[in-house]
Design a protein around this nucleic acid. Structure first.
Lengths: 159, 159
DNA sequence: CTACTTGCAAAGTGTTTGCCCTACG
DNA sequence: CGTAGGGCAAACACTTTGCAAGTAG
């Protein structure tokens, strides 16, 4: 029913305002405040389209949920806050010597590399207390989900 | 039915022989060659237990599937082959100056960092051709899955 | 009209869990 | 015999897709 293309720029401006690589669910929730009839599938589709167009990138690390952010000109590293789950771009530039060193030592052909720092971000360290979280926390030190187990499982086991 | 604990060491020795951080499915397939009655749930449970005991670690990056490997003494970086999906430990040690630099520039509290290199491994570059793959390839440059769509979907849409 | 977007719900993938049964100590 | 491990299938979180209905040019 709605006008085509209306969500593209809405999603882009949301990510522009919030440059911490939100989850799909975060985008969905925020988008529904302005567009209450938007569906989750549309958010997924819109994000995929924007990634395919090169406007967004997806960061797969540290979480069970996909994270999206605007594409930047220069390559950079990331900081993941383990308290609020925000992912910050870092001003440190890529170090090309690292890739050459790996190639020299291992014989592998290196095309790119990523660096992620983990810890607590400045906002969560501040006296105002932790920042409201984005997404869910992973269980231990890994990257998978856990169950709250809302419903009772099975009533009868063997028929 | 089977002897307790028999899968613990079987999984550990599989990972010892194959230090490229295999997927759960890879472990399951290999394990069934020796133990045809093992179930996938047991493999997941065994891996989780070994991670909780500190014998294994899980690497969440670059794939839709979890990857597991033996815990090493010293921290190190990883190389992900985008052809065969193997994940190699790298002999490069952590550089502690990086974490200090991030803290100084951003004000975030940094507790650890990870570095992943991507490219084609030496085996896949060799004249023998690509090494048999482990796990599935991610779609584009991201880390999510794709569908082959085996079955026809719905027969009647609206009742 | 044609091409494209969207909402809805079903399906798909990877992972976890409840329950019972069994083997071991 | 109690206790913990394991098989099985259901449940779960997250994501993608088929179809119908609607819109824009």
């Amino acid at each position: 029913m709605p006008r085509p293309f209306q969500y593209r720029e809405a999603v882009l401006s949301l990510l522009k305002e919030n440059p911490v690589h939100p989850t799909v669910d975060w985008v969905y929730t925020r988008l529904r405040e302005e567009h209450p009839r938007v569906s989750l599938a549309t958010v997924y589709r819109t994000l995929r389209i924007l990634v395919a167009e090169g406007l967004l990138c997806e960061l797969p690390f540290g979480s069970s949920e996909a994270r999206f952010g605007l594409v930047r000109e220069e390559r950079h590293y990331h900081f993941v806050c383990e308290t609020c789950r925000r992912i910050y771009d870092l001003p440190l530039p890529h170090d090309p010597r690292l890739e050459r060193a790996v190639r020299r030592v291992t014989g592998h052909e290196v095309s790119r590399h990523t660096v992620e720092f983990y810890g607590r971000c400045r906002d969560c360290l501040g006296e105002t207390g932790p920042t409201p979280p984005i997404g869910r926390k992973p269980p231990q030190g890994s990257g998978r989900r856990q169950k709250p187990s809302t419903q009772p499982r099975r009533k009868e086991s063997r028929p």
